[in-house]
Simulated scan of single mutants.
Amino acid sequence: MSARESSKHIVVIGAGVVGLTTAVKIQEKGGYSVTIVAETFPSDPKTIRYTSLWAGAHHVSHADGDKKQEAVDIATFKVMWDLSQQGGEAEGSFLRLEQTDYYYDGRDTHLDWMPNFKPLPESNLIDGAKTGASFTTVTIDTPVYCNYLLSRFLARGGTIVRASVQHISQIAQGGGHVFTSSRAGKGPHVDAIVACPGLGARTLGGVEDKNVYPTRGQVVMLRAPWIKTGKTASHLADGLWTYIIPRRSGDVIVGGTKEENDWYPVARPETTLEILQRALALCPDLAPEEIRAQRAPTVDDLRSIVIEEGCGFRPSRKGGVRLDVDWVPGAKGKIPVVFNYGHAGGGYQSSWGTADIALDLLDKSLA
């Protein structure tokens, strides 16, 4: 009997950054044979149904003193820092840079664990900011990184199935290949399911978590390879924050918005204008140098370097991330379902840390 045949068979539902990271973590543990079942994969064209490609993204923890959240964010940062080092396995997915955060509410940043962390003196704050900090972090080229995770998963022996799962029982009773006509009913039985459905947890049968809701975020991508540092200004009073996220490729993501329970699937022109206005105010260097040399830039000066505008639905959840276990009927008795979803806007920042917890829950359930 081959190692694969003797392994426990795990199906991961969902191929966003959380599902991919969790699948990689389980597959590389050893003793598990993992199949990802998802409707959309990162190599597909961008769609509103796949949030992970729309993210900025950078590693700036949102824990704000929550020790449990901070622990998973720190664990994730350590992995990403190793991956991003020169010659690292996924160096091309990341850009290491100096990040400056400004806070209008005077909060304590709680980010002193980040490399080169320094509170900003009052003289270095922007207008209206009460506190701030600088540190070194990584930005993530999300399409490149998600495809790296997928290729790493496949290279380690993982398999994928493209399907729209209607109910968790379909997987529990039929296995990961129940949706493929050539292998339906012929694949191995499933020993456990790991559910990472993101926003799909609202409607996935057997889960139907009504605490899950979308937080719409709109972004604009600019071509500005001269921008080498990241900036964020938090406007908590009105639910907005402005960010400048350069990528290794020379593209820069600017945003952003937080619109709870807003399902509008494409960019609103008026929001794009408002984002560009805020971004230019925070970082006038976004405009091309030849314009800045002559006069103060305007939003119109940014339009020629706009590559794309769009939006994504962050998978938010009342009560925060769900990390627990339930049991459902399988082909040969009850099997565990490990849940890992509800990351809101922190999926990238906490992906490896929550994957660690999901793997521990899986190990204990199958012990």
Rank of each mutant, 00 (worst) to 15 (best):
A237L: 10
V321P: 02
D108I: 15
V328R: 01
V299E: 01
E260I: 12
P143G: 13
P284M: 03
L323H: 09
K258E: 14
T40K: 08
P214G: 11
I26V: 15
P197G: 02
V212P: 03
S123P: 01
A367F: 04
A38D: 10
D360N: 12
Q166I: 08
S164H: 15
A267W: 07
G205R: 09
Y103N: 10
R152V: 06
T242F: 05
D101F: 00
K8M: 14
S182P: 00
C196L: 04
G30V: 03
I10C: 05
G345T: 10
E270T: 07
V299F: 04
E5F: 09
H58T: 13
S182D: 14
T215Y: 01
S93Y: 05
D285C: 07
V220D: 06
D301E: 02
A279G: 02
G31K: 06
G250F: 06
V37T: 03
L240A: 14
P284L: 00
Y148P: 05
L366E: 03
D251V: 09
E270P: 06
D105V: 06
I307E: 02
T159K: 15
S181F: 07
V190F: 05
D363E: 15
N261S: 10
S249A: 06
H59P: 03
L282N: 04
Y243H: 11
H58F: 10
V138T: 08
P143N: 07
Y213F: 14
Q349G: 09
L111Q: 11
D64F: 14
E39W: 04
S181Q: 15
H343P: 11
R248F: 03
H167E: 08
I193H: 02
K67Y: 02
G345R: 12
N147A: 07
R183M: 14
G106C: 08
I10F: 11
K67W: 07
G312M: 00
D356R: 11
Y50N: 11
L150H: 08
L276Y: 04
G310C: 03
R248L: 12
T272M: 12
L20C: 10
P246E: 12
H9V: 12
D191A: 12
L282D: 07
G14M: 11
L204V: 12
V207A: 02
P315F: 03
F41T: 09
F117S: 09
A184P: 05
W263R: 08
G174I: 03
G230S: 15
R183K: 10
V165I: 15
Y50V: 00
Q173W: 01
K8C: 06
K231R: 15
A279Q: 00
D101P: 00
V266H: 11
H189A: 13
G320V: 02
G19T: 01
A3V: 13
L83D: 06
D301T: 01
Y145D: 02
L273Q: 14
G174E: 08
